Simulated assay, not measured.
Amino acid sequence: MEMDLPTRKWSLDAAIEHGPNRTRAQIVLRAPDGQEFSGVGLALRTAPEQVASYLALGRALSDLTEELVEAATAELDAEAGRTQHT
C-alpha cells in the first residue's frame, strides 16, 4: 500500500572553475526553508579536465555531507538541551 507523503523540494547548484593548476567545485544546497549548505572541493590539474572535474565535485559533495551532518548534530544537541531543561 502506497501512501501519498508530502514532498519538500531541495535545490542543488554546482559550479566548476578550471584554473591553470587546479579545478575548484562548489555545490550549494538550498532547503525549502531557505537555509543553505555549501561544499567546496579542489583537484590538481595533473589529470585531464573531465577527471579533475569529477574529483573536485566528489570532494565538494563530501564536504557538503560533513556540513549537513554537523548541522543535524547541532540541531539534535539543541533539541536535547531544550528537552532536558524544560
Rank of each mutant, 00 (worst) to 15 (best):
D63V: 03
R8E: 15
T83R: 15
H85Q: 15
V69Y: 04
P48K: 05
E70K: 14
D77W: 05
K9T: 11
T7W: 09
K9Y: 15
Q50E: 13
E66I: 10
T83Q: 12
S11L: 14
L55K: 03
E70N: 14
D63Q: 01
A80N: 09
F37Q: 02
R30C: 13
E2M: 14
S53R: 07
S38D: 00
V28M: 08
R45H: 13
A78H: 10
R59E: 08
L5V: 10
W10Q: 04
E70W: 06
G58C: 09
L44F: 08
A43F: 08
Q50M: 11
A71Q: 07
G34L: 06
V28T: 09
A25T: 02
T46G: 10
I27G: 00
P32S: 02
A52D: 05
H18Y: 11
A80W: 02
A15E: 15
A60R: 02
E49T: 07
T86P: 14
V40I: 06
A80M: 09
N21Y: 04
L68H: 03
E36W: 08
D77S: 03
E75D: 12
A47E: 10
L42K: 05
V51P: 07
W10N: 00
R82V: 07
V40Y: 10
P6A: 03
L29D: 04
G41L: 09
T46H: 09
H18Q: 11
P6Q: 04
Y54R: 12
S53D: 15
D4I: 11
G81W: 03
N21K: 06
A56Y: 01
W10C: 07
L55C: 04
A52L: 05
D77K: 05
E49V: 14
R22G: 01
I27L: 12
S62K: 13
A43H: 01
P20Y: 05
T65V: 05
E67C: 09
K9G: 13
V40H: 07
E36M: 14
V28E: 03
E36H: 01
G19W: 00
A43M: 11
W10P: 00
G34S: 03
T73Q: 13
